[in-house]
Design a protein around this nucleic acid. Structure first.
Lengths: 204, 204, 204, 204
DNA sequence: GATGAATGAGGTTTCATTCAT
DNA sequence: AATGAATGAAACCTCATTCAT
């Protein structure tokens, strides 16, 4: 957790530091990212860094929390508005869409998350051992879908949740790799949803 | 490419070095992995390491090639046997199964591949810029499925291929995380396949 | 070019580092000179060295520039005073004298320059490919001598310049080898000048 | 001194090793020159190197001796033929000419000698502390010149010898730097000799 | 609080030389 | 005698972190 000094900083400076950190962590794996580079980019003294944060990991943890929070905000906004209105698949659509919007609005945040996934040791230190939260989320969504009568009840919610979560990654990575998404995001999501709904089998 | 000296080494020693490297790379991201640790673990002098390999990256590349080759061997064996016999979904099942078997037989190799994915720069240096091969593979498989009349022809092969590839990761990661799989691997795969085939929608 | 940190250092410390560097480079060819030795001798941490200089070569370049500048200062002082007063041979005498005075005042700097000469690759990196400056200098001096009517006009200025430059080295090396010069420096220079002026031939 | 094994080697192989050594020492200062490179270039095993030579320095010493011997041979041949025939300045001319011929025939040997000069420590280990032999040589020549009545007797032979020796270096370096000499070597030497004989002063 | 110099552990890599076959 | 693998000391350099002002 950053020290109080960090939170007492003028908004603008805090912002600069965070931006610099994002730049560095987006382009380098954690152990490769340099505190010096962040300090320079942010225009603060190297010593100041340690006045704000316990150490490199402290900053990274904080950053990660912010990212998660931000990503959540994309989802929630849509869901809150839609909760009553949408059916299960429409909700799912919104969720995926929010993921894409997040990636599009914050492309530099995407690789940071991806990088973390691969470093299990670091991941553990940051999120504890707890399971992937997004899986929980999709699992709950699926239960809701079953209640609604939209999802085939015999489906194993846990497995399906993992699949949906994985698909979410696939989607974001797809968007991120391609650079920019445009109109036909919709098309891609709709096709993906079609497959999720109906599978790929040829019906006779 | 390792130097000749490496290939001239007695089988046993070569094995020791590779094992040590796997241990190190499985538990540390590339830049965090230490040549010293590998040399010590393998019981060779640090200088010897550089008689066998150009540098750390050289060893890593080689290791990665071996991993890919090995993984391929799991797939190929099954496919070659089945080519004529199996229908599309049976083939897909075999492919996933082979992925799981690979992960089960070589659990330490899994995280190495996963780590690489997140380090785009390193990834590029090793595989060039070329796209994920597994996506190509699944795409071809899908085309075959369409010819066979097993896959709904309107499905976008590229997108579906990405999804199938992603699902493959999901599966392996699942297995890897849980430690060991037993009999009911089958069950999980079958459920996953059911979803892929039919989707998750409640048919009326 | 040393970093700012170096120039911000207290005079005394900067001096210590330079002295240590001179000691090391005076007794070892560049590639044999050790950063560790310099740091130890200067009483600074090895890491500090790299806070002051880009790398070993950076320090060496800087040192070399200082040496050249210092040597120049010996010449210039005399020349500026003498420009109007002296004839060509008197000027030449001053130049040689300044070379000797430099060598006498800064004996440890002499071998550093000499060592550099032999390492063409390093020399090129430091001074660029440009010709030996001292040759240029003597050439100009000779032209001046011809204008003055002191130098035999048919003499090839380029060749003679090379000879005078070489002789300058001979002289310095002589002084340096012998350890210390005393009164009869004058005598040696005068004899040398006599030869340069009149040659060694017995006139009939 | 190389071991017997070296001298028992077939002429052709010995030659190859020497050539490889020359290549390496001509392009790298002693401490930068690599035994490995020499062995590779010569097409022998690294281990064999130590069967022939005590160590790197041993080979270098031997090489240096050969170079000196070879250079001598250029001088001697001319001198022996000329001893009676030539006057002092003609002899001097022959000596310089032989230096140039040597440099032209063996350009790769020149920088090796030059490099050695700058590394006083190494120089001492190889030639002992004894004075520069070429100075001795020129001194004797000058005495002879005086006897002959060709050299102005009041000239200090030691100083003049140093100058002549230095000039010899100047000359060789000149030739070496320029790459190749052609016909007008003669011209250069003659001009140089003119200066040595008569000086550069304008006679009234 | 801000600064930036100081530190030193630790990392990769090189290479002369020895050793075992 | 010939080979080439093995060794390990030592070099350069990086960087997170601490210290002193």
């Amino acid at each position: 957790m950053p020290k109080d000094t960090f939170f007492n900083l003028p908004e603008e400076k805090r912002e600069r530091i965070i931006e610099a950190a994002i730049d560095e962590f987006a382009t380098h794996p954690f152990h490769q990212a340099r505190v010096t580079a962040i300090a320079e980019e942010a225009g603060i003294a190297k010593g100041s860094f340690y006045q704000y944060f316990e150490d490199k990991k402290d900053l990274f943890k904080y950053l990660m929390e912010q990212i998660v929070r931000k990503k959540m905000s994309y989802i929630n906004r849509d869901l809150i508005e839609g909760k009553g209105k949408y059916g299960f698949f429409q909700l799912l659509r919104e969720v995926y869409l929010s993921g894409i919007r997040f990636a599009k609005d914050n492309p530099r945040l995407v690789p940071i998350g991806i990088m973390l996934i691969s470093d299990k040791e670091l991941y553990g230190e940051i999120f504890g051992e707890h399971e992937d939260k997004s899986v929980d989320f999709f699992q709950q969504l699926l239960e809701y879908g079953k209640e609604q009568g939209a999802v085939y009840p015999k489906i194993d919610s846990v497995l399906a949740a993992k699949m949906l979560a994985g698909m979410s990654y696939t989607l974001v990575d797809y968007v991120y790799a391609d650079g920019k998404l445009d109109f036909n995001d919709m098309e891609i999501i709709d096709q993906m949803l079609y497959i999720i709904e109906n599978g790929i089998k040829q019906k006779e």
